[in-house]
Structures are given as C-alpha cells and as structure tokens.
Design a protein around this nucleic acid. Sequence first.
RNA 1: GGUGCCGUAGCCAAGCUGGUAAGGCAGAGGUCUGCAAAACCUCCAUUCACCGGUUCAACUCCGGUCGGCACCUCCA
Length: 495
Amino acid sequence: MLRLLDSFTRRKVDFVPSEPGKVGMYLCGPTVQNSPHVGHGRSAIAFDIVRRYLTWSGFEVRFVRNVTDIDDKIIVRARECGEEVGAFASRYADEYNSAMAALGVRPPDVEPRVTGHIPEIVALIERLVARGVAYAASGDVYYSVDSFAAYGRLSGQSIDDLRAGARVELGELKQNPLDFALWKAAKPGEPSWSSPWGPGRPGWHIECSAMALAHLGETFDLHVGGKDLAFPHHENEIAQSVGALGEGTFARHWMHNGFVNFNDEKMSKSIGNVFLIRDLLERFDGETLRFFLLGTHYRSPISFEVFEQDGRAVFPGLDEADRRLEYFYGTLARLDAFLGEKREVSPGPVTAGADRLDPAVRAAMDDDFNTAVAVAELGEAARAANKLLDDPAGVPKDVRRRSLARLAHDLRETAVGALGLLGRPPREFLHARRARLAAARGIVEADVAERLTEREAARRAREFARADELRDALRAQGIEIMDTSAGPDWRIADA
RNA sequence: GGUGCCGUAGCCAAGCUGGUAAGGCAGAGGUCUGCAAAACCUCCAUUCACCGGUUCAACUCCGGUCGGCACCUCCA
C-alpha cells in the first residue's frame, strides 16, 4: 500500500485514488521568464518520480504540468530583451523542457499554457464573482479572502496571522490587504484579452485552478509543487477552486518538495547563488544530477555544497554521485558481459539476496517515495552481483547464471521504473563519462590507447619494468589502467 | 510579530504510527593481481544538539533550551 505525506493534513495517508486504478495529478510548472536552475530540476524530478512510480505500480496516471507564459515578470523581462512576449515565453519554455529532458524527466501528458486557457479562466472568475466571493474594481477583479473560511489552512495560518505580517501596502482597490488579483486590467502596451471587466490578463494564481479543473476535472487526486508555492499560490488555488465549486472539490492530496540550498542557504536570485542546470550540464551528466538529487528524500532540504579550488568550482556531492553512477553502470556492464545474449530470467532458485531488490524498492517507494532507501537497495543489489561475479565458489552454475540474470534484470527494471535511472546502455554512459572527464583534463583518448597498446606489448614480452613505467606515466596524468581478462581498459582516476 | 521545517559518525544521508542506529563518501586492514586499478571481504555512532517528562522501553511521543533554515513580497 502506497502511503504519502499529505501536506494539507500533515499526515501520512494511504493513497487511494478516487477512481480505482486512475490518478489525476497536477504540478505547478515553470513561469517561463528565465533559465531553469537546480531547484526547478529538483521539483521536476521529485514529481517525475511520483508519476513514474505510480505508473510503474499499475496506475493509469494523467499528469498535467502547466506552463505559465504570461505574467508581470515575463512582460518586464521580454521588454528588457526587446522581444515579443509570446516568443520570449516560448523560448524559455523550450529551454525548460530540454533541460528537464536531460535530467530524465518525462514530458507531462498535458502541458497547458495560460494563454491557451483565457476563456476557462474568465469563466472561473465570473463564477467567483457570481458567487459573491470576488469583486471587480476599476477593471481588476479581486478574490475576497474573508469569504473563504478555510483560507490559510494549507499553510497553517489564519487570516489574522497573515494580516498581521502582511507587508503589502493597502491598495485602495482591495477590501482586505490579503485579497489577491484574479484579473488585472491591462496597462498600455501590455498583452491583453477582452473580458467582462475590460481588457486585461489573468492574475498569478487563477491559471492553475482553471487549468487543473479543465484537464483533470472538478476533483483530482494529487496537486504537487515546491514548498515555496504553498503560500500564497496553492492557498489561493484552493480558495479559488473551492470558492467556485464548493466544499470537497479540487485536489484530494497535496505534496510539496523541499528546497535546494546552497551552503545551507536557500538558492535565491537576489543572493546570486543560483546554479543553472545548463551550466551544470556542461560538467556533469544529467543522470548524475538526477542521482544526486534522489539521494535525499524529496521533502528534506538538499545541501548543495560548492567550494572553490584552484579557481574552479567543486561540487563534492555531484562528484560523488558521478562516481557512484560509474559503479552502477560498471556493474551492469560486467553483468552484460557475463550474460551475453542470454539475459532472460529463467524460473528456478536463485542465491540469497538475488531476488530482494524488487520488493525492497517497492517497500521504500511505498513509504512516501523514499528514493534514498531505494537507491541504497540498488547498491545492495549491485554489490551482490559483483560478489557473485567475482566469486562463484559454492554456487551451482545454473543458479549463478539465473541469479545474475535476475539481478541484471531487476537492477534495470526497478531503477528505470521507480527512479528513472540506469536506463542507458552501460557502455554509453561509461564512455561519455570518461570522455567528459578526459576532455576536462586535456587528455586525448587516442594517445592513451596508443600507450596502452605499447604497454600491452611490453607486458606480453614480460618486460614489467617497462610496462610499469608506462603505467606510472599515465597515472601521473590521472589515468588508471585496468588489466582485465578481456584486455586493458582505462578510466580517469578519482580526484 | 505569526507560521512551518531542521539539528543522526570526519562529510553526505535514511530511520521518527517507540522496541534498541540503512546506505554512500572518506579512512584502516585484507582477497584478487607480475605490480596495480576495478571489484569483493572485514572494521569504522553503547549513540542520534542539549535538558526534563511520558513509558517496561524514545533518535523516534510531550514540554523547554540552544543553534540553523524557510514562508508571511516574486520564487521549484
């Protein structure tokens, strides 16, 4: 039974979708006004995992992730760039999607855009006005938080608490400083759509209500997003949706992911400690970033440590993740080499531990998507595989082969199904990694191959002194030679 | 001021509907190897910021203290 921590009730609950076997899920996607940073990646990956695991568990998931392609900042930024708003937003939406693809995030089933849902938004606002929970003022429309008794429940605050801390100056149009805009009257030169209140555009929160309702219906199972969206964004979404449709509508459960912190402080554009995904991708494989992020539970803050060494940024966590991924893919490569073409798992007994990965990963994921434990289980399985590969003593041949086939199969199956990891041919990852590290150190791969051949000749002639000399020379460059039964191979030594 | 989160070995990080500390990195020793590397094996927290309380039993529950972070304004 899958259990998840519902951030609305702050309790772990059994997850039972309203319609058996089917799940409707909404994630607040990006406001496309800038290049995506690690925090965007974490959120996208965290919920990609939720979606993947639900799907892998047999649910039919309808996953909606919107693109907010019109808002104040987009207008300002587009103007700064001298670009037309629509083209500007599209450009960043494309960048977002390609960055997420590099992180192994699968595209949503539906990717609605705000500008494609103006009629739905206007209709929802009209409904709120008709119900008396929203009011028009000089071409704007505001939501009256006082009309919604449950306002603040998601974020655990009362209207009074919020009002006390509100830093917003009381705009004369708002009846309560906490009231928020559903519709904003157009200022000269801004993109606008016609509405019963005159030309304008949607406020920040209404679009998610409208698009979620449009694509998932009046009630759906999961609404997810970053912790920072809980207030006011998600709070307002609830107010709008329940305000328009009544009690018991909208999201049944809420999930929020934690932040990525930089040296223990939240990444923030104003502090200037934001790490762009595209910059990190120049140095690390997208899968490495994903692996690193999955090492921490989605609700916990991730400390993204960075320090400078020899004038160059060093990311210890990413380096470690990269090395670990090399281990996993290396294990898969060994398994593939052993199994050859016959990789199917035959029925019959396997060694102790060779069949525990699948249930262990499911148990971990069933407990509020504990990816850290799932990854640890992957490690246990890889170790068991390597051990059996290294030391066949005492294990009947057929049992050994079957166990290794099972391990190879489950390693991939669970890693891909639950975590979106280890889905590539091992050689591809291994060679890409080596090439990347080699390039960073100015090592020419062809030169290494040449020296390796030279050393092999020396070894064959049993001129070990000469062979060792060549190896030491390569090691001085940070290259490690690995003599295997299939001939010499090499890797970049760990820093 | 209001609200919420966090503090587990040198570092990263699970566990927290109570029953006696997963995993990874680093480190030490070992197996394998012509020598190595990789891989594998063994060791590495009598203790979970601190102080009280509840309990037969607390890292896990309650109260308090200290320290850190976040939200209340745009933010994944």
